[in-house]
């Protein structure tokens, strides 16, 4: 079957039941999205499908409808997405394992809500767990990215 990831079309020979995360990591060698729980409880595997945040660990690739964006396609080292730049500025990551999912979820949040309140950030980001507890920095970075995007 065919799927488009970060603007590139790929042909993969997999069972339709295979979760998108497996296809990305094991078939296409795109390792940004992480495996955490496999049942949409932690958010580490979050990618975008046509701009919407999706937990790729439990999306059967046969049910995929739309183009996939992973953290590799969100920005580039030369031109970071505003959320990535804010993550660097606020040194959000500690161990970093969940951060790909956090950033993808935060970018999707700002797409739907350009100026979220603390409460709205908490409501949207509570599906993305961070065992290092970087939540205060995540919140600050999202506010910062929202500000930068509004000025752009």
């Amino acid at each position: 079957m065919k799927l488009t990831v970060n603007g590139t079309e790929h042909e993969v020979d997999v069972e339709p039941e295979m979760p998108l995360l497996w296809v990305l990591r094991d078939e296409l060698d795109i390792k940004g999205p992480k495996y955490g729980c496999g049942i949409a409880q932690c958010g580490a595997c979050t990618v975008h499908v046509d701009g919407m945040a999706v937990r790729s660990c439990q999306l059967p690739v046969g049910d995929l409808e739309g183009e996939v964006t992973t953290i590799e396609g969100l920005g580039t080292p030369e031109s970071l997405h505003a959320v990535q730049a804010a993550w660097v500025a606020h040194q959000v990551a500690q161990c970093g394992y969940c951060q790909s999912g956090q950033i993808m979820q935060a970018a999707a949040l700002l797409d739907l809500n350009p100026a979220p309140s603390d409460e709205e950030i908490d409501a949207v980001m509570s599906g993305n767990l961070c065992r290092c507890g970087t939540y205060p920095r995540i919140r600050a970075a999202i506010h910062d990215a929202a500000q930068k995007l509004s000025e752009a």
């Binding site: 919407m52 945040a53 937990r55």
Partner: peptide, 21 residues
Amino acid sequence: FLPCQTCHVTSDDFDTAPHAA
């Protein structure tokens, strides 16, 4: 806030793991 479809996939296959969405 968070779209239901972030976790709840649209699929004709109802067979999910326990505790999965």
